[in-house]
Computed example of a mutant assay.
Amino acid sequence: MPIIRLIDGINEVVGRIVSVVAILFAGIIIYDVVMRYVFGDPTRWAFDVTKQLYGFYFIMLGGYALRHQAHVRVDLVTARLGSGARRLVEALGYLIFFFPFAVIFLRESWKFAMTSWRQGEVTYGAVSLPVYPLKLAMAAAAALLLIQGISEFLKLVLNRTNTPDPEEALDVR
């Protein structure tokens, strides 16, 4: 189904791009450690920057993790069910728990981000970094998580248990 491939493809691309951020914040941490312990000249900005980069990294990979079934799951109930009953329980879980949570998360994170944007909110650490980009990332992550939930729900309803290869997911023809 094209919509499933499109959504999976979007989260695949975002996940691959955002994963590079881990390399960036690891590099900053190594730089700060070398500056602190080798040269005795710690940076004032590294801690604040790595906190924000880690927050960005963590929140933006929610849709990617859901696409690859990497979220923590408690299969105590569904482990003993047949495949049809398991799909039904999982679909109901999306309808009852996931979608209401994702919609509220999107709505509230958007309001949170817009308030931060209007106020020009900055951190209170050693360096005043803008906070609104991270809060905007929360809203974007909520949207990515919601659309990936739609894709996963459609896979359950349409009995599509296998997910396409990442390269195939990017082809929306």
Rank of each mutant, 00 (worst) to 15 (best):
Y57Q: 06
T115S: 15
I96Y: 12
V21M: 01
L24T: 09
G82F: 02
I104C: 11
V103H: 11
Y57T: 07
Y94D: 03
F98W: 03
I59A: 06
V89A: 09
A137C: 04
V77R: 02
R67D: 08
W45N: 06
A22S: 13
I150W: 04
R86E: 09
Y124M: 15
Y57W: 13
G40R: 06
V18Y: 01
F99Q: 05
V72L: 09
A140E: 02
F98M: 07
L53Q: 04
V38M: 13
I30Y: 05
I59P: 01
R118H: 14
Y57P: 00
L6D: 06
Y54L: 15
N11K: 01
V34C: 05
I3W: 13
A22F: 11
F47S: 07
T43F: 03
Y57H: 10
V89Q: 10
E90L: 12
E152Y: 04
T163M: 14
S83E: 15
V13G: 06
F98P: 01
L146P: 01
M35E: 08
T161G: 14
L66F: 09
L76V: 14
L158I: 07
R36L: 03
L66W: 03
V131C: 09
T50Q: 05
F101P: 09
A137L: 04
M35F: 09
Q119N: 12
R73A: 08
V127P: 11
Q69C: 12
N159S: 14
V49T: 14
E152S: 06
T43D: 02
N11I: 01
Q148F: 01
A141L: 04
D48F: 07
L92W: 13
V20C: 07
M114E: 13
L81H: 02
N11G: 01
V49C: 12
F99H: 04
L146K: 00
V21W: 02
R160Q: 15
R36Y: 02
L81E: 05
E168K: 01
L129D: 00
I150S: 03
G15C: 08
